[in-house]
Amino acid sequence: MTGGRAAPGRLVLGLALMLVAFNLRPALSTVGPLLGQIRETTGLSAAGAAALTTLPVICLGLACALVGWVIRRLGPDLGVLAGMVIVAAGLGLRGLGGLWPLFLGSALAAVGIGFANVLLPALVKRDFARSSGPMTGLYTMTLCLGAAAGAGAAVPVEHAVGGWPAALAVWALPALVAALAWAPYARRGGPARAPEAGRLLRDPLAWWVTAFMGLQSSLAYILFGWLPLLLQGRGLPALDAGLYASLVTLNQAPGALITATLAARARDQRRWVVGIPALTAAAFLVLAFGSETLRIPAACALGFGVGGCFGLALSLIVLRAADAASAAGLSAMAQGIGYFFASLGPLAFGLAHEATDGWGLAGLLFVGITAAAVVAGLPAGRARTVSAARRD
């Protein structure tokens, strides 16, 4: 990737970037609230539901492995546009109904999300180098708002349009809007040099950042896929469970913004690595197993914690990278490998629930993943940088 290029109309560019970010989670967060209806109408088993929540995360990781090719052939700016078009196509495919379009559309949308996921931190590093912390927080916050909109609106939209296929497909519209908004910027840069992956694969710091990204992502995808069903298991109607899930997701936005902005100002990020995951684990236990009167504050705290973990993970990618090319390489590594391992989280969570016909073992697994994220995040939070740029 090229570096040091000032983008014209930074405010408009930032708004277009936010529109892209808004569309990076509804494809994932809309499935959980509708999972009960999907299982009832299709006969999907609990294991099949676990596979449905796991498949997009695997595809996110696979897409990240292709980003180097995308950078070389298209350039980062056109790569983001291609990602948005693919997201819209995948979401539209899910509207055909049935299990095959659902699974294939989810996989396709995840590929598009993976492209944009990797490229956005590199573009922030390139175009907003002097304000990378606030910009990382802003686009992560917008991403969380998109996730919250998907989780909260899924059931009401399903009631309005008369079925889950149309309720899932309607999210193709904002993805198309984002593609149109980004189209003027897709012409800014042509194909560019891709980062050298081998340099990062030999760097321990890159692996610690990757581990933290994967472990904290696992927590988010567990909540996307299983929190509504867990709350329904506690006696909440589907609509109420979806609204609680939306409350969790909505509070990810301030968590991401505040954590990313403040953590970027610190000398290193190790205190944040301990505090934010600890808040996440405690809030999850209260929401899942605590008093009914504490559900609302626990949901807010859980959302703040999960959003903070995600904002912190993206901040570590930007802060630990020496330049824009290194940010692209570290982002591809952290999200590609990280999402592959993150996919095991919702799968293991679902299998633990099915094996015990309860949520105790699954809840213990969630806390264990949180503890592992702290262990990985401590060395990732130290004030060092990695370089992945090709040398002539």
Rank of each mutant, 00 (worst) to 15 (best):
A211S: 00
W100A: 12
G112F: 09
G242T: 00
P134H: 00
V31W: 06
T140N: 09
P33R: 02
R94H: 04
M213N: 01
V286I: 08
L287Q: 03
S131C: 12
D323I: 01
S331W: 04
A153S: 12
F224T: 13
R73L: 06
F103H: 06
V57E: 06
P26I: 05
R382E: 13
F128D: 09
A197P: 11
A186K: 00
L17R: 13
G377F: 00
T259L: 05
I86C: 05
T356C: 11
Y221H: 10
G198H: 06
R384I: 07
C300M: 15
G189S: 13
G48F: 01
T30S: 04
L78M: 14
P56T: 03
A220D: 15
F115V: 03
L104W: 09
A172G: 13
R187G: 06
E40I: 14
A263H: 02
R202A: 10
L205P: 02
R94C: 06
I71A: 04
A82I: 12
A6T: 15
R234N: 02
G233V: 00
F284C: 01
P76K: 05
S315K: 08
T249P: 15
A167S: 10
G233D: 01
L287N: 05
Q269L: 09
G303Y: 09
S246G: 15
L215G: 02
L294A: 09
D77N: 14
A110G: 03
A260M: 03
A278H: 13
